[in-house]
Design a protein around this nucleic acid. Sequence first.
RNA 1: GCUCCCAUCGUCUAGAGGCCUAGGACACCCGCCUCUCACGUGGGUAACAGGGGUUCGAAUCCCCUUGGGAGCGCCA
Length: 477
Amino acid sequence: MSDPIVTRFAPSPTGFLHIGGGRTALFNWLLARRHGGKMLLRIEDTDRVRSTPEAIDAIIDGLKWLGLSWDGEVIYQFARAPRHKEVAEAMLANGRAYKCYATSEELEAMREAAKAAGKPMRYDGRWREKGPEDHAKAEAEGRKYVIRLKAPLDGQTTVQDLVQGTVTWDNENLDDLVLLRSDGTPTYMLAVVVDDHDMGVTHIIRGDDHLTNAARQSQIYEANGWKVPFMAHIPLIHGPDGAKLSKRHGALGVDAYRALGYLPEALRNYLVRLGWAHGDQEIFSTDEMTAVFDLKNVGRSPARFDFAKLESINGHYMRKTDDAALLEALRPVLAHVEGGAEIANALTPEKEAQWIAAMPGLKERAKTLVELIDGSRFLFATRPLAMDEKAREILAKDGKAILARLLSRLEALPVWEAAALEEAVRAEAESSGLKLGALAQPLRAALTGRATSPGIFEVLVVLGREECLGRLRDQAA
RNA sequence: GCUCCCAUCGUCUAGAGGCCUAGGACACCCGCCUCUCACGUGGGUAACAGGGGUUCGAAUCCCCUUGGGAGCGCCA
């Protein structure tokens, strides 16, 4: 185990990179980085019907956004089909595999029989001991063969799993799986084993839906006399209701989280704590998590996806993010929110500077970038401002009269700075015998069109003298 | 159905026989701070699935039950 660690992330490109895949990739990436090893990326595109180039792009794009980098070139499994075939034929030659001419009708009959008997489908090994004469006869009938593994009939197969512990199967429950299809293409089982072996993968981290496969794959390793890599089968992520994660809950593509306004570092932090813990620590910088990540601490029970916690962590990271950097993170999200295009168009250098100036007050009031954009709308609104219902109520009372008095005080101000503005507003409060809040709310309504916003003196300063006085006059009338 | 895996607050989890009258975080409730909303901060509600063992002692070990999950293809 002192050899350099090599992990791999091996998605099949039949859809986007979903959140569970993202976590699997993260764990592989963390383990490799923790030990100064490598994480390889292999696209399992042997299913020619379901694999699409769009999905490949989506996966690669998703990994990049999440900040998970891989080493070396992307490996495409389909391109290695000749090598897979070569291994299958070598296994045939040394008697670890055999030709099976069973037809799909025969297989279907076996399936039916198994179902009727209440047992899982198990190929019965009818071609296991057949000789050349039988093969020739089948060939003469025009039948095609697949190559099956000659799996052990009795005894047990044990997987030493770094997360699941020692898991054992009786070999009688494992049948002779197909290695090479009748069209000469490899099955997933064969391809995975050959690729992981050839790529020098030392640690396989994947979802525990592959646990049963692990047993069958280790038989393939053994049939070839290859060392079985360390394996770690991590529990799947479930939806809030405990059922399998569906699109309805969180099985969104990683890119959807970007559109929803989450920061990649927040998603990483959330994901790493799903099924893994390091004492009571909740917040992990990337360096911190790579320094302490250990498969030993990965739990064995499935975790539910919880948006509330993700939002909380995201809020934390937004507040920690530098204002200018936050603006950059905001930009790509604009395309995904209503009115975002208008904001994007209005982003002159001056507006950007204004937005950055407003950021401190904005970012502590939002849990996602989408919320932050929503809270920023008053910066981009044009006069006369549209008032929302609560703002209207505030102004409907004696708000307008208060604004008029405030207006004259503010107009008289020689400088437009927070301290001076606050002093003026407080002076008005004092002379009219009102609490500060009684003045701040009408001000807020007139300035932002809403009942909530960043601190009112912040808003005053960020908006600037002319714009503020204009908005106040609009409403004071 | 068969095989395998799992089981601590609503959720994510700490806990590797005595440190546990079970800790942290999110969510929720009540305060404080306060120009609103937040942030921050103080406090609170809330869990060892059930039953048997083993042991001086069990959330921690074993068994059973119950409840979840995954897999059972010439898909990956």
